[in-house]
């Protein structure tokens, strides 16, 4: 049955599996609130994964890897900024193009650099919270993660506050609803949306970097496996509330771990059923919360001053 060691591994693995979704989902949420539907977050994640892996491999520092991953995601989001925010092109089409382009480019780079050696990064540093990490079962599982996990949770709390209580947060929410009104009030719609789109890029890049550096210790082509699209759904379901992204992502991650647990314990359930659990959970969330999901009225619509 489930030993303490196995339970710890399952909970730890579930939270770790949810972290890339938290990072990408938080960035996506900010972008969506500003009216920019960033379909390209999958591409930003894979670029972040590649950049983070290469930087960590070269410097031996996961911190440098995260920095590179975030910057890589931000750099890719500039395509979104230029083509969609500045030029007003179709956000969905450009987002798909970003994903396809990023997947192609990273596959090519991987083939050139790593296909003969498949280098791997060892286990990254862990920040154990004193006393709490000594608790049985949940101690190491909940309180023994990479520092970026705690920083991300703090960022989610800060983001919740910032979106509601700061002028920048107000501007972000307003350009997603009535950009013309914001423009008339003297706030730059383009600058605000640029900031939001680049936040999504940084989030996606960091999510990809976490995947490659902490979770996998590897980079291989297409390794994000659609996680960027799950992050988009989580951001939509969160209805503008960052902490809901955190809850949804960890719920998804834990349900993935639950699938592993059911197999290891030998519960006689068909594997098709086992692997449908995470997706069934997302569907249940959709039914419970999604029908009231609120999307900004100017989401995915380009803004051109003077046009109505």
């Amino acid at each position: 049955m489930l030993s303490e060691q196995l339970l710890t591994a399952l909970i730890f693995g579930g939270l770790a599996a949810g972290m890339p979704l938290v990072l990408a989902g938080l960035g996506e949420l900010v972008s969506q609130r500003a009216g920019v539907l960033n379909i390209g977050v999958e591409g930003m994640m894979i670029m972040g994964a590649y950049g983070g892996f290469v930087a960590t491999l070269a410097t031996g520092s996961a911190g440098m890897g995260f920095l590179a991953g975030g910057l890589m995601g931000a750099a890719v989001s500039l395509i979104m900024v230029v083509l969609c925010v500045r030029m007003g092109l179709d956000q969905i089409v450009v987002g798909i193009a970003i994903t396809l382009g990023a997947e192609g480019l990273t596959s090519l780079l991987h083939a050139v650099q790593f296909s003969d050696t498949y280098p791997r990064i060892g286990r990254t540093i862990v920040l154990s919270i004193p006393w709490l990490s000594d608790l049985p079962v949940v101690g190491r599982a909940l309180f023994g993660h990479h520092p970026i996990v705690y920083l991300t949770l703090l960022a989610a709390i800060f983001g919740t506050w910032a979106l509601q209580r700061t002028r920048t947060g107000l501007a972000i929410r307003a350009v997603g609803e009535r950009p013309e009104a914001v423009d008339a009030a003297g706030v730059s719609v383009v600058s605000t949306r640029t900031l939001a789109a680049m936040t999504a890029g940084v989030g996606g890049g960091l999510g990809g970097a976490f995947l490659a550096i902490v979770n996998a210790g590897n980079f291989i082509p297409f390794m994000t496996g659609g996680r960027g699209f799950i992050a988009i759904v989580l951001a939509m379901l969160a209805r503008g509330r960052p902490l809901w992204v955190v809850v949804g992502a960890f719920l998804y991650g834990l349900s993935v771990s639950l699938a592993t647990a059911l197999q290891l314990v030998g519960v006689p359930i068909r594997t098709e059923v086992v692997f449908s659990i995470p997706f069934a959970l997302v569907l249940i969330m959709l039914v419970l919360f999604g029908r009231n999901a609120y999307l900004p009225s100017a989401l995915a619509l380009p803004y051109h001053r003077g046009e109505r």
Binding site: S3, Q5, L6, T8, A9, L10, F12, G13, A16, A17, L211, N215, A216, G217, N218, I220, P221, F222, M223, G225, V256, S257, T260, A261, L264
Partner: peptide
């Protein structure tokens, strides 16, 4: 191609002994 899943599941299998 799920390299992260490979790591996660294997860690659980190792934790099983």
């Amino acid at each position: 191609a799920d390299v992260e899943g490979g790591t996660r599941v294997t860690e659980s299998v190792i934790a099983s002994g």
